[in-house]
Simulated scan of single mutants.
Amino acid sequence: MLAETLRNLKSGELAALFAALADATKVTPPTQNFAERLVQFFEELPTIPSDQAVSNPPSPAHTDLLHLFDAVRFPLEAVKLIGGRLNIWTIAGLKYNEVRTAGALAGLWRTEFGGGVSRDFLAFYLGRIDRGVDWHWELCNGYSVFTEVNPLGDLSDRVDLVIETTRYLIGIEIKIKAGLGYLQLERYASALEARARHARKFPLLILLAPFSVATSDVRLSSWGDVSAAAKQAMACKVDVKSLAHHVIAQFGDHVAQH
């Protein structure tokens, strides 16, 4: 239906649609440029060291892409109304790249990106892992998200994502197509526990992967959990859904295939 509708659009209308979508004036949609800016946005979100109370100002890429998201709001809504759907994560070529996917997930979970909906997304995900904690309350007290952290400074033990709250130190190892290294989770669990003990926090190590392992030190999670959490965040009752809601929902749709 989308393809047929696009074929029926006049050349000027089609050009305007793609120009607004890519925030450019070219008739041919520069999707590669869009992908690079999308990835750069998440890679350059400010990282907050554990001893730093506030983040650095947003980078130019952060500000530019926020403008880009605002610019594509109408085209995305227009495409949805005519029965089609564009997934920006497909356009960005995220595919099965674990490093880029971890960076994107970290960006979506940071309140600098989506405010309350980003916090809800993370809270719903953690709630699927550990139902004994009120994660919405925990995260409302403040949290930070880091990528490729060395809990004890050892370059061989880099956890893909670390979330630090007032009471918890959470490590998330991400796998999509790759497998685990020799005693990888055991090393991570030991390093995370030592770091948490030093910070007087509770450690929690999560394996986010399309497979399971037999270990008592690690909580298991699937990409289906991420997808379900994204849907829950999207379903939260707000008067108007922001573009951040739709970006997170599309991320959930994308990783559901993993």
Results as ranks from 00 to 15, higher is better:
88 I>E: 00
50 S>I: 13
94 L>H: 08
71 A>D: 03
108 L>I: 10
79 V>N: 02
154 D>T: 04
100 R>M: 08
141 N>E: 13
185 L>M: 15
167 R>W: 00
84 G>R: 11
112 E>S: 15
132 G>C: 07
92 A>S: 14
173 E>G: 02
136 H>P: 03
142 G>F: 04
64 D>S: 14
120 D>E: 13
154 D>L: 09
142 G>K: 07
100 R>E: 13
128 R>H: 08
154 D>E: 11
172 I>H: 07
156 S>E: 11
96 Y>H: 11
166 T>A: 13
134 D>G: 00
173 E>A: 05
67 H>W: 01
147 T>N: 08
148 E>H: 03
166 T>D: 13
63 T>E: 12
99 V>G: 02
161 L>Q: 03
58 P>Q: 07
82 I>W: 09
87 N>H: 02
152 L>Y: 01
90 T>Y: 05
118 S>R: 07
98 E>W: 07
96 Y>E: 14
82 I>C: 14
172 I>F: 07
178 A>V: 00
143 Y>I: 01
109 W>P: 06
59 S>G: 06
88 I>D: 07
134 D>W: 03
79 V>H: 03
106 A>R: 15
157 D>P: 00
117 V>K: 11
155 L>C: 06
142 G>I: 08
173 E>C: 04
88 I>W: 08
105 L>S: 08
166 T>N: 14
137 W>P: 00
133 V>S: 06
181 G>M: 10
121 F>V: 01
96 Y>I: 12
90 T>W: 05
154 D>Y: 04
111 T>N: 04
128 R>K: 14
160 D>Y: 05
